[in-house]
Simulated assay, not measured.
Amino acid sequence: MRTTTLIAYASLIGAVSAIVVPEARSSSTIDDTALLNYALTFENLENALYSGALSSFSQDDFVNDGLPTWSRGRFEQISAHEQTIVGLLSSTVGSSAMQACDYSFPYTSPSSFTELAELISGVTVAAYLGAAQYITNKDFLTTAASVLSTKARHAAWIAAPVNKHNAWSGAFDTPLSLNAAYTLAAQYITGCPSSNPSLPVSTYPSLTIANASAGQAAAVTAANNVTTEGQYVAFFSGLSTTFVQVQGGQVVIPSGSMGISYAVLTNSNSTADDSTITAGVAVVQIDFNSNGIRE
Results as ranks from 00 to 15, higher is better:
101 C>S: 09
112 S>K: 08
238 G>Q: 11
235 F>K: 03
95 S>L: 11
99 Q>E: 14
53 A>P: 07
68 P>W: 12
97 A>M: 10
142 T>Y: 14
181 A>T: 03
248 G>Y: 02
52 G>H: 03
216 Q>G: 11
132 A>P: 07
130 G>S: 00
53 A>M: 09
149 S>I: 13
219 A>H: 10
26 S>K: 05
198 S>G: 14
197 P>C: 06
87 G>K: 14
66 G>H: 01
230 G>V: 01
142 T>W: 13
285 Q>M: 14
277 I>S: 07
254 P>M: 08
8 A>D: 11
90 S>E: 09
131 A>E: 08
159 A>R: 11
176 L>G: 04
190 T>V: 13
165 H>D: 15
109 S>P: 03
32 D>Y: 09
94 G>E: 00
25 R>T: 06
141 L>T: 07
230 G>P: 09
12 L>V: 05
75 F>K: 12
105 F>N: 02
11 S>T: 11
175 P>Y: 06
248 G>M: 06
289 N>T: 10
124 T>H: 04
82 E>C: 05
177 S>A: 08
144 A>Q: 14
176 L>D: 01
219 A>K: 13
178 L>S: 02
210 A>K: 12
217 A>P: 15
276 T>F: 05
37 N>M: 02
67 L>R: 07
185 A>M: 10
177 S>W: 06
189 I>T: 04
210 A>N: 07
119 L>D: 01
112 S>L: 01
293 I>W: 00
168 W>T: 15
30 I>Q: 02
274 D>S: 10
126 A>W: 00
